[in-house]
Design a protein around this nucleic acid. Structure first.
Lengths: 193, 193
DNA sequence: CAAATGACAGATTTCGTTTTTTGTCATTAA
DNA sequence: TTAATGACAAAAAACGAAATCTGTCATTTG
């Protein structure tokens, strides 16, 4: 009865649109089904539950955050510059998302918070992007040698204030970039040789 | 009509009890008045609004957190040990509060989040406890010399994950202490000479 | 026979109504 | 003359009935 072939992807894209329009608390799977001109029972043929559908949307969003960070590896620069750029890029993405549409950011954050496994995978992915940068710096003699994965997760945790959505309210502060620089200097002097 | 002389203090203590019993969303100033056997109009003679009463309770709680930290200055030890002890004490207080009574912790956190000025004063107070430790370390030649207040706020921000209530859920992790050690090592190697 | 439907039970949400609360103030009590 | 009261209007919360939603499944459709 649908206009297009009804794939998981189609449902996912429509769910995302409906969530964007109605928000996370007001979208029902009936709404998504209505947007697709199918019965809501059909959705359950492709997703076992409403939660799994929301989780899939959350995962897609997180992927859109981690993907552009890979471009940082193509930059020709030192390891400390690359590390700084990587962090600033991550932070810039998040801060821009909040600034441009706070409601939308809250919507995605709500979905993400429901999906613990997806978040943990995302965090793991981000940290494993940091590790090679640290290793590069150690190989270079730029950084003191140590356990790169410990350093990487330390850096990720120490910068939580700037990228963890729980701190989004603080990102509106006019001094937030300066505050990042303070923390960055502290971290950098901890790892350089 | 009250049993005791009706002071700001008496009202504050009673408000705290009622809040503890009923929670932050279910306590009205009528409830507090009832507990004191006075009319609710009387409360407004001592506090200009419900918000200011809640703020006063929040402030008292925050004070009970910052006060015991002063004992750390009486320890006979090096600056880096003192700094580590200070951070671990702060973190231990918070983690213990959550663990022993998560609902109560949430109650106080709710009050605190409403009171931006009170929180900022509290954070300022905490950071100004760190500054003299850093200065001691610099005077000692233990730490590289630098702007102590910048270092202090950097350390406070870099450890947010372990003391900011927005991260309370993460404190239940069995590896949280280990994670603090990772961040602490990173910070320490950034400041030692 | 694979894909979609629609009816169904139980859980959850919405909505209009009633009750309670907040904050003020003229009046009362000490 | 200071402290407390209680009545009041406007705002917010609580409540319960009605509607909607979730997830399942026997039946229908192409």
């Amino acid at each position: 009865m649908a206009d297009h072939a009804l794939t998981k992807e189609t449902i996912l894209d429509t769910a995302e649109q409906v969530l964007r329009r109605f928000g996370p608390e007001k979208t029902s799977v009936v709404d998504v089904a209505r947007a697709l001109n199918v019965s809501h029972g059909t959705i359950y043929r492709h997703f076992p539950s409403k939660a799994s559908l929301r989780e899939a949307v959350a995962e897609k969003w997180l992927h859109s955050i981690s993907l552009p960070l890979e471009a940082v590896f193509k930059q020709e620069c030192s390891a400390s510059e690359r590390l700084c750029l990587w962090l600033k890029t991550l932070i810039h993405i998040k801060h821009t998302l909040v600034q441009e549409d706070p409601e939308l950011f809250t919507m995605y954050t709500t979905l993400v918070e429901e999906s613990v496994d997806v978040v943990n995978a995302h965090i793991g992915e981000l940290i494993s992007q940091i590790i090679p940068i640290i290793e590069e710096g150690m190989a270079n003699q730029e950084f003191k040698s140590a356990d790169a994965s410990l350093i990487a997760s330390g850096i990720f945790m120490a910068t939580a204030r700037f990228h963890h959505p729980a701190h989004a309210k603080e990102w509106a502060s006019p001094t937030i970039d300066h505050e990042f620089d303070i923390v960055w200097n502290l971290i950098l002097s901890g790892i350089v040789k």
